[in-house]
Design a protein around this nucleic acid. Structure first.
Length: 802
DNA sequence: ATAGGGTTAG
C-alpha cells in the first residue's frame, strides 16, 4: 500500500469527523444524515479492499473507522468490526467513544466482551473514566478493584486520576473517603504526577466538611509544580462551596494568570449573583491585556443579563462584533446564545429573534432560549410557534412550554401538553412536574394533582424543592390543607418558599392562629422572613380578623427585619382595619405612609368605607381612585356602586360612560364572563348522581338566562367530580377570567365552604353561590378571602354589591 | 487505545 493512499484515507476519516461535528448539535445521540453514513460505508469498503482493516501496519485506520461508527446511531457495524479483533486496543477505543457520547451501556458491553485475561490497564482506565463521566462512583471503584485484584496488572497515574474524579462526584462524599484515597495514592507513588494531585485537590474541595478545603490547600502547597488547572480547580472548588471570597484570594495569589483562571473567577462571581464584581474583573482583564475568549464573553454577557446591565451588555456585544472573526462557529454558539438571552431579558425580543435567526449553528440551548424569551415577554402564541418549529427538544423545552402555559393562564393547555409529552415517551423533569402540578392547582383538579403526586414519588423527585413546593401549593389551592401540611412535614428540604406557601395555605383557609404559629416557628428555626412572608402573614391575619396581631407583625417587619413595608403590605393592613370597623385608623395610617397612596391603597380604603357605611370618606377615596388608572374592571364597578350609594348620580353616570367607552361590561355578576368561555362546575361527589344532574339542569337554566342577557352566546358547563373532603367544601374560582359554579351534594347544614381565589369585586362566586343556595334550599356559609357572607334563599347578607 | 478545569437556556 503506497503511503499516499494511507494518507488519503486518513484525511478522509478526518473530513468525515469534521462533517459530523458540524451536524453534531444535540448531544448525546446525533442524528446522522444518510449521506454521512453512505460516505462512511464507502470508506469502510475502501479499507477492506485495500486490506487495511486490522492491518498491523496501520492500526490507527481501523480505530478511526470504529470511532466514526460509534458517533453514528448505527451501532451494529462497530460491533462487527470489534468481533474481528476483540482485543484490548479496539475495545479501549470503543469504550471511550461510547462514553464520550453518553452511551455508557454500550461502553460497558465492549469492556465485558474482552476476556478478562486479555484486559490491560489502559482498558480498565477507559472503563473507570467512562463511569466517572456518568457520575457513577461505585462501579468505577469496582473496576478499579478488579484492576488491583488481577495480580498481573497495576494501576497507573491514569487509573488514579479517573478514580479520584469518579469518587469526587459522590453525593455524600465523606472526609474519610478522601483520606483513604489519599493514602493509597501516596502508597502507589502516583502522587507525584500532576494530574493525580490536581484530581486529589478536586476531591478534597468537593467534600463539604470545612477542614477538607485545608487538606486541598495542603496538597497544593506540597506540589513541586503547579499548572493552570491546579489553581483553577481550587478557585472552582471554592465557588462551588459558596465561598467566593476564598476563591478570590486564591485567584489573587496566582502569578502570571492564565485566562482560564480569570474565566473561572468571572463565572464564579456570576454564579454567586455578584455580577458587579464579575464586570469589575472583566474590566481588569481588559486593562491587563489578558486574552478574552468565548468563555469570557459568555459569562460576562450572562452577568449583564442577570443583573440588568443592558447598556454594558450592548457594549460587550460591540466588542464581540469586532472580534467575532476569530471565533470558530462552534465557539461562537454559546456566545450567541448568551446574546439572545441578554436581549430577550432586556425586553428586546425582536433584536433577540434577529440574532437567533442569523445564528449559523443552533443547538437546543438556542431554541430553548428564544422559546423562554417569548414566554417571558408574554408572547405565548409566538412561543407555541417556536415550540412547534423546534428541530429538537429536550426536557427543558417541554418544561418551559408547560410552565409557560400555566403562567399565561392556560392551565388546561399545560396539562394537555404534559400528557402529550408522556405519550411521546419524553421523561418529564421535576420542574415539568412542578408546572403540571401548578396547572392542577389553578384548575382545582385535585384528583389529577394527586395522580401527579404519585408519579412524582415513582420518579423519585421527592427531594426536588420546586416539585414539592408546587405540590404544597396545589393542595392548598384545592382546599386540601391536610395534604398540604403532610407534604410540608415530610419534605426533605424546606426552603423559604415552602414556609411561605404553608403559612399562606393555613391563612387562606381560616387557620389564622396556626399560620401565625408557623411563622414564629420559621423565625425560630433561623429562616429569615422576606416581604412575601409578611404579605402572607398579613393576609392570614386579615382572614382571621386578627387586627392586633396584624399590627404586631407589621411593626416587627420594620423593626426586627429591616424590611420597609410596600404598597401591598399597607393595603393588607388597611383592609384588615376596614373589616374590623376601624376605618378611622386606616385613614390615619395612610397619612404615615412614606409614599403617595396607590390605586390598591384607595381600593382597600374604599371597601373599608363601604362596609362601615362611611360614604363621605368613601366618596373621597373614590375620587382619588377615579383619577388613577384602574387596575382591573372591578374598579369601575366598585366606583360606580360607591357613587350611587353616596347619591352622586352624575359621577356614577360618568363612571358608567367611561366603562362603555373602554368596553367594560357593567352588569355585575355577568360582566366577568367572557364570550364563548366555559363555566367549570365542580361537584362534590359523583357527577352521575341524580342530585348532581339536577344541579346541572339548574345551571342550564342560568345559562339560558345569561344567553338571554346577551353576554354569553355560547355557554358550556363542564362537570368535574371531586372527592368530598371531610367537613371542608371547596368552591373553586377556576381563574379570574372564567366563572365558577358550584353544586352541592349531601352537604351537611352549616358546612364550611372555602372560596379559594381572590375574586374580582363584582363577585363572580357570589352570584353562583346565591343561585346555588336557592337551588339547594339550604344556608351556606362562605369563608371568603375578602369577607364572610351568609347566603340564604338566594340573598346575600352583605347586599352591598347587588 | 485511556485522564483532569472555565461557557449558554429554567
Amino acid at each position: 500500500m503506497p503511503p499516499s493512499a494511507v494518507a488519503s484515507l486518513t484525511h478522509q476519516c478526518s473530513l468525515l469527523l469534521r462533517r459530523l461535528a458540524e451536524r453534531h448539535s444535540p448531544a448525546p445521540a446525533p442524528t446522522c444524515p444518510s449521506s454521512f453514513l453512505r460516505a462512511l460505508r464507502c470508506l469502510h469498503a475502501r479499507l477492506l479492499t485495500a486490506n487495511l482493516l486490522h492491518a498491523p501496519s496501520h492500526p490507527h485506520l481501523t480505530l478511526r473507522l470504529i470511532h466514526l461508527y460509534t458517533l453514528s446511531p448505527d451501532l451494529a457495524t462497530p460491533a462487527v468490526l470489534f468481533r474481528c479483533d476483540p482485543g484490548p486496543v479496539a475495545a479501549t477505543s470503543l469504550v471511550a467513544a461510547h462514553a464520550a457520547t453518553g452511551r455508557l451501556r454500550d461502553a460497558a458491553a465492549f469492556f465485558d466482551a474482552v476476556p478478562p485475561a486479555r484486559r490491560d490497564t489502559v482498558l480498565h482506565n477507559a472503563m473507570i473514566s467512562a463511569f466517572a463521566r456518568a457520575s457513577l462512583a461505585a462501579p468505577a471503584v469496582s473496576v478499579f478493584r478488579t484492576l488491583l485484584g488481577s495480580g498481573s496488572l497495576r494501576p497507573d497515574d491514569y487509573s488514579f486520576t479517573a478514580l479520584l474524579s469518579a469518587v469526587s462526584q459522590m453525593h455524600n462524599l465523606a472526609a474519610s473517603h478522601c483520606t483513604q484515597l489519599h493514602c493509597s495514592v501516596l502508597k502507589s507513588g502516583a502522587a507525584a504526577v500532576l494530574s493525580v494531585s490536581n484530581a486529589l485537590i478536586a476531591l478534597y474541595m468537593k467534600c463539604d466538611t470545612p477542614e477538607s478545603s485545608w487538606d486541598a490547600r495542603k496538597v497544593l502547597d506540597e506540589m513541586p509544580d503547579k499548572d493552570d488547572l491546579t489553581w483553577t480547580t481550587m478557585v472552582v472548588g471554592y465557588v462551588r462551596r459558596g465561598d467566593v471570597n476564598a476563591a478570590r484570594s486564591v485567584f489573587e495569589e496566582v502569578d502570571g494568570k492564565f485566562d482560564v483562571v480569570w474565566n473561572a473567577m468571572i463565572s464564579g462571581y456570576v454564579q454567586s449573583g455578584m455580577c458587579a464584581d464579575a464586570f469589575e474583573l472583566f474590566r481588569r482583564m481588559v486593562s491587563e491585556k489578558v486574552p478574552l475568549d468565548e468563555f469570557t464573553f459568555t459569562s460576562i454577557l450572562s452577568a449583564c443579563a442577570n443583573a440588568g446591565f443592558f447598556v454594558h451588555g450592548k457594549s460587550v456585544h460591540g466588542q464581540i462584533i469586532r472580534l467575532q472573526t476569530n471565533f470558530v462557529p462552534e465557539a461562537a454558539l454559546p456566545v450567541n446564545n448568551a446574546l439572545v438571552t441578554l436581549y430577550s431579558k432586556g425586553g428586546k425580543i425582536v433584536v433577540a429573534k434577529r440574532i437567533f435567526d442569523t445564528m449559523k449553528p443552533k443547538d437546543v440551548v438556542s431554541w430553548n432560549t428564544i422559546l423562554s424569551g417569548y414566554i417571558d415577554s408574554g408572547c405565548l402564541d409566538k412561543a407555541v410557534e417556536v415550540f412547534k418549529a423546534m428541530p429538537y427538544k429536550n426536557d427543558l423545552s417541554w418544561m418551559v412550554m408547560v410552565s409557560g402555559y400555566v403562567h399565561g393562564g392556560l392551565s388546561e393547555d399545560a396539562l394537555k401538553l404534559f400528557n402529550h409529552m408522556r405519550a411521546e415517551d419524553v421523561k418529564p423533569c421535576d420542574y415539568t412536574y412542578a408546572g403540571a402540578i401548578a396547572a392542577c392547582g389553578e384548575l382545582g383538579a385535585l384528583k389529577h394533582g394527586k395522580q401527579l403526586h404519585a408519579h412524582l414519588v415513582q420518579c423519585g423527585f421527592e427531594a426536588s424543592n420546586s416539585a414539592e413546593n408546587a405540590l404544597l401549593t396545589m393542595y392548598a389551592k384545592c382546599g386540601a390543607v391536610k395534604d398540604a401540611r403532610l407534604v410540608f412535614l415530610v419534605m426533605p428540604n424546606v426552603d423559604s418558599v415552602s414556609w411561605n406557601a404553608m403559612i399562606s395555605a393555613l391563612g387562606q383557609h381560616g387557620y389564622g392562629r396556626e399560620a401565625l404559629e408557623l411563622f414564629d416557628q420559621m423565625v425560630a428555626e433561623g429562616i429569615a422572613p422576606d416581604r412575601i412572608s409578611f404579605l402572607t402573614i398579613l393576609t392570614a391575619c386579615n382572614h382571621a380578623g386578627l387586627v392586633h396581631e396584624g399590627f404586631h407583625y407589621f411593626e416587627s417587619m420594620k423593626r426586627d427585619f429591616g424590611i420597609s413595608p410596600g404598597e401591598n403590605h399597607y393595603a393588607r393592613l388597611i383592609d384588615l382595619l376596614g373589616r374590623a370597623g376601624r376605618i378611622g385608623e386606616a385613614r390615619d395610617l395612610i397619612k404615615t405612609m412614606p409614599f403617595e397612596p396607590t390605586p390598591s391603597i384607595w381600593e382597600a380604603i374604599l371597601s373599608g368605607c363601604r362596609t362601615n357605611g362611611d360614604m363621605e370618606f368613601g366618596a373621597y377615596a373614590a375620587d382619588q381612585l377615579f383619577r388613577m388608572i384602574p387596575q382591573h374592571d372591578g374598579t369601575y364597578i366598585l366606583l360606580s356602586n360607591t357613587y350611587s350609594a353616596a347619591g352622586r348620580w352624575a359621577d356614577a353616570a360618568r363612571v358608567r360612560k367611561l366603562m362603555r367607552d373602554r368596553g367594560v361590561k357593567k352588569e355585575p355578576g355577568c360582566s366577568w364572563i367572557e364570550v364563548g368561555s366555559k363555566i367549570h362546575v365542580f361537584l362534590v361527589g359523583d357527577t352521575k348522581h341524580p342530585e348532581a344532574q339536577e344541579v346541572y339542569r339548574f345551571l342550564e337554566v342560568i345559562g339560558a338566562r345569561m344567553r338571554k342577557l346577551g353576554y354569553v352566546p355560547d355557554i358550556k358547563f363542564v362537570l368535574h367530580d371531586m372527592e368530598p373532603h371531610e367537613k371542608e367544601y371547596v368552591l373553586f374560582a377556576h381563574s379570574e377570567k372564567l366563572a365558577v359554579g358550584f353544586g352541592l351534594l349531601k352537604l351537611p347544614p352549616g358546612a364550611t365552604v372555602t372560596v379559594l381565589k381572590n375574586l374580582r369585586i363584582c363577585g363572580d362566586c357570589h352570584t353562583a353561590m346565591m343561585f346555588m343556595s336557592k337551588a339547594v334550599g339550604r344556608e351556606i356559609v362562605v369563608r371568603d378571602v375578602r369577607r364572610f357572607h351568609h347566603f340564604k334563599d338566594g340573598e346575600c347578607s352583605c347586599g352591598n354589591y347587588w
